[in-house]
Amino acid sequence: MSESMTMVDAVNLALAHELEQDTDVVLLGEDIGVNGGVFRATAGLLERFGPHRIMDTPLAENLIAGLAIGMASQGLKPVAEIQFMGFIFPTMEQLIAHGARMRNRTRGRLSCPLVIRAPFGGGIHAPEHHSESTEALLAHIPGLRVVIPSSPARAYGLLLAAIRCPDPVIFLEPKRIYRAVKQPVSDNGIALPLDTCFTLREGNDITLISWGAMIKETLEAADQLAQDGISCEVIDVATLNLLDHATLLASVSKTGRCVIVHEAPHHGGMGAEISATLAERGLLDLKAPVARVTGFDTIMPYYRLENQYLPNSADIVEAARQTLEFV
């Protein structure tokens, strides 16, 4: 029984499913209770599960992370919402100095099975601080998983997996596609695998690698290239840490050419890590330099110019053509 729904509905469905299945799952964050979250991701959950499990916190993001770590140390599975990724920075000390390390520094005596959810990325004409993509900052930290869905069905399955994961997961939700498409999602409780890329389209000529909202433009680019007879393999990375090297290397060993697409700035972005991995371990398979289509190395412009900043499908097509023309 599948119902057609948006990504934000799928997030809500996964949260409700785990709250129903596991009494250790609790939600905390700002405005997640009566208001149901500023994007309505937690709508209706307070009514169903009560204020002991759906907790509006005082307005302090560092507090939310610290609370979640304390709860997780006692065996609860807190799922915390940070309202926008632009406000995740106060949580970084807690996540890096404690959440990511709890299992290791106690040699497994304590652990930190928490999820931090945060909407991220540009494209919805939001105010300053509401549009950045800083996933690479988090993916750099050993012990923290960083997971990004790119469709309603993957949001449902990956969020279930994140909540069930015995270690901390940062779950970044690309808000540009929160309501952009509907897709049938079955509330079957089946989690998707973490640490695994999803090959969305198989192809032989070039590998297009992306994640989150940019999957939309990447698939559009693949469609345009297909009209010229170019067969693109499209990979949704989905988990940025831990990165599924095997799938990426296998694809590039087949196609020999690769374009990596992300909204985040070029410098030090996850594209650099993937590109370096391909160079280190797949150089002899490469027929052309790996190309990156990314945001600029600038402060993300306010929304009047945000579309000038965000890569689009034409940028991806152009990069793919240049890569294909390289001899």
Binding site: V26, H52, R53, M55, N62, L63, A65, G66, L67, A68, I69, G70, M71, A72, S73, Q74, G75, L76, P78, E93, Q94, A97, H98, R105, T106, R109, L110
Partner: peptide, 27 residues
Amino acid sequence: QGQDLPNCVPIATQCLHACGVAAAFRI
């Protein structure tokens, strides 16, 4: 050491864990 938390070297960050621990008791 049971469920006791380990030493906390960063300053005052443990105070927030304590709130999470206490909230877990309340929940």
